[in-house]
Amino acid sequence: MEPQSNAAHQAQNGELSDEIIDLEEYSSSGRPVPKAKKYRIRIDKEKYVVQVTDMTGREILALAGKTPEKFLLRQKTKGGVEEVKPDQSVSFLKPGVERFMTIPKEVTEGEGPTVRRQFKLLDQDMQFLDGTGLRWETIMEGGVKAVAVHDWPLPPGYNVSHAQVHVRMTDGYPDAQIDMAYFSPALNRADGRGINNLSGVVFDSQQWQQWSRHRTPSSAWRPGIDDLSTHMALVDDWLAAELLK
């Protein structure tokens, strides 16, 4: 049995721990977040220490020197990415809270990057992608239909914190499964240990690292339930599981 942390022991005894509770660390290890005097939260790439158990979206943006008039706020959790509205309260004690991301509300006309929409997605897939707050594209090349998402967040432990990722939409989707994932730049473990079952492919005029990860009978595709959002949750699980090997 995993030894109980000092913070958890103090919480059991009705005491508030003096330890700074790092939400990202607790979430990645699957531990429940105890009540404490201080919490460390990550907003984009910076970490901040706060002395409250909950804050509104407006207050979280203010920590990073931003306002809801100019920025959107997203919360990364174990279950995916969720919108946080300005007056919505976020509890740091809620299981699975990892970190927060800010997104500029608009770009000056003519300055934004080109976003390609070369084939149509299901409404539920577009809602999922829009909900991430990340830039995404649909790309067709050589009969391959791919959904590419820019700046996909990676768990600490890789050579980069964000990467472009694409997945390929198979004929017959959503009844037919989505398989594997492709990253650019190539991912490596920060500790230097190798990652099995990787290969390089060229798509959309750039090099991608193919992660050959496949569903097992216990995680078989469920038509009517599984879609792009559940596949990307599985991709996140692959990334986290790799670091535990």
Rank of each mutant, 00 (worst) to 15 (best):
G133L: 11
D191C: 08
V201N: 07
D22L: 04
D179M: 13
D227Y: 06
L239N: 05
R193W: 07
V144N: 12
V160A: 00
N13S: 10
H9G: 02
Q206V: 06
M232I: 01
E242N: 07
A241Q: 15
M232T: 04
A176R: 10
I20F: 08
I195F: 13
P155G: 15
S219R: 14
E109D: 06
D204T: 10
F119E: 13
K105W: 13
K70H: 07
M55R: 02
E46N: 11
G133M: 14
D191M: 08
G192I: 01
D125F: 00
N197I: 14
A146P: 03
G143M: 14
G57F: 13
Q88H: 11
Q118K: 09
V97P: 00
D18V: 05
I20V: 15
H214C: 08
V97S: 06
L154S: 08
T138P: 00
A11N: 09
V97F: 01
T108I: 03
A11T: 04
D54K: 13
K70C: 08
R99T: 06
L61K: 07
K37M: 09
S161N: 04
L72F: 14
S199C: 09
S205D: 14
Y26A: 06
Q118M: 10
N197K: 09
D18W: 06
S91A: 12
S219A: 15
L93K: 00
K66L: 04
S212P: 07
T77S: 12
S161R: 06
W211D: 03
E2G: 04
E109W: 08
E59S: 08
E109G: 02
V107K: 14
W152M: 12
D237I: 10
G96R: 02
